[in-house]
């Protein structure tokens, strides 16, 4: 009996003219993420070399504090993008959540009722959008754009002004400091964000739901023919993204002890950009939560560098963010392309 012995990449990278290539390269799946990591490190050490105190551990720890909301939202977005979708509503869900939370707390609702309620609401809105996308075949971009209008519309309808939060639990969560090491402290929000990242990464890698997410993004028709619950998976990722956005809103309201209907405007694009920088393909089927984490770190580090630079006005801040984003994406493309 003859055995067909095949090593992978018979037809692509491992062409007869270039037999040695494989040896030097890591698994092609990880190239975008490694490229991001390398560039992130370069950026970090450039900062360390140029600014005093940049090398202190608190700079890294503060990255998580300052970007906790973006991180949580990006995690939900990662799931959605891996299925080949997109969720534009996340920023608006944040504003809806903060406004509602502040209003309910001001109205004397117990915080332990408000918390699950707003999370549930975010998840429900996500589920609704997922259902519209799946059952009525509305393009995700449009369905979630409608969700954006709806969520922000609700937020503005509740209150157009910033509402302060005076609830004890919120206050204490906001003020609570976790000491990691001497002189290095962090907040509840950053710890929450890190926990969310870890759970999400585990779910994507080790559960059936996680693998179905990849399958749906890789080829939804095939996934259906393989008997996978495509509809349920699609609805679930939007639900998850809605939940993450609501959680982001809660973190926001804890950080700022206030709620405002114009909070989180444009955050959806930051989250999408973070995912893309982290190597999550907008076409679906490929990407990792840790990639998105790196993407958020890139975003955060850009902000940090700008802060350290100090003398930049708002206009230059925007331009520098744009330029760095540009440099980053182009570099990543060059690295990824060369690897192939």
């Amino acid at each position: 009996m003859t055995t067909v012995d095949m090593t992978p990449a018979t037809n692509k990278s491992n062409s007869p003219t270039n037999p040695r290539r494989r040896v030097y390269l890591p698994n092609t799946k990880y190239i975008p993420i490694l490229a991001t990591l390398t560039l992130l490190l370069i950026m970090y050490f450039t900062g360390v070399a140029n600014y005093r105190n940049f090398g202190q551990p608190s700079v890294v720890v503060n990255l998580f504090r300052d970007n906790a909301v973006l991180l949580v939202v990006a995690v939900g977005m990662t799931f959605v993008i891996i299925t080949g979708g997109i969720d534009l509503s996340v920023g608006a869900v944040i504003s809806m959540t903060t406004t509602l939370t502040a209003t309910l707390l001001a109205g004397g609702w117990p915080p332990l009722v408000v918390l699950p309620l707003v999370l549930l609401l975010g998840a429900l809105l996500g589920a609704g959008m997922g259902a519209v996308i799946h059952f009525f075949k509305v393009e995700p971009f449009i369905a979630t754009l409608a969700g954006l209008f709806l969520a922000r519309g609700i937020a503005l309808f509740i209150n157009q002004n910033s509402i302060p939060i005076r609830d004890k639990l919120w206050k204490s969560l906001s003020e609570y400091r976790i000491v990691l090491a001497d002189g290095v402290v962090t907040k509840v929000t950053s710890v929450t964000a890190v926990v969310v990242v870890l759970i999400a990464a585990a779910v994507l890698a080790w559960t059936r739901f996680g693998r179905n997410v990849y399958a749906v993004g890789g080829n939804a028709d095939s996934a259906l023919l393989m008997g996978l619950p495509v509809g349920r998976t699609k609805i679930a990722v939007y639900t998850l993204s809605g939940f993450c956005a609501a959680l982001g809103g809660v973190l926001f309201s804890i950080n700022s002890t206030s709620g405002w209907a114009l909070q989180g405007q444009g955050l959806e694009l930051d989250a999408i950009a973070a995912c893309v920088i982290g190597g999550v393909l907008l076409t679906g089927g490929s990407g990792y939560v840790f990639g998105s984490l790196l993407g958020v770190m890139v975003y955060g580090l850009i902000q940090t560098i700008i802060t350290f630079q100090g003398d930049l006005n708002a206009a230059w801040t925007r331009i520098i963010i744009g330029l760095l984003l540009f440099g980053f994406i182009v570099l990543q493309r060059v690295v990824t392309r060369r690897a192939k």
Partner: peptide, 28 residues
């Protein structure tokens, strides 16, 4: 099917077992 209806972005093993992965405590 005529056109291979698998998810080419997944591994060979996953393509065979997806939806039926061996699990313990929910973990693949």
């Amino acid at each position: 099917y005529q056109e291979v209806n698998l998810c080419t972005n997944l591994s060979v093993a996953e393509n065979i077992f997806i939806g039926r992965e061996p699990r313990r405590l929910g973990r693949i």
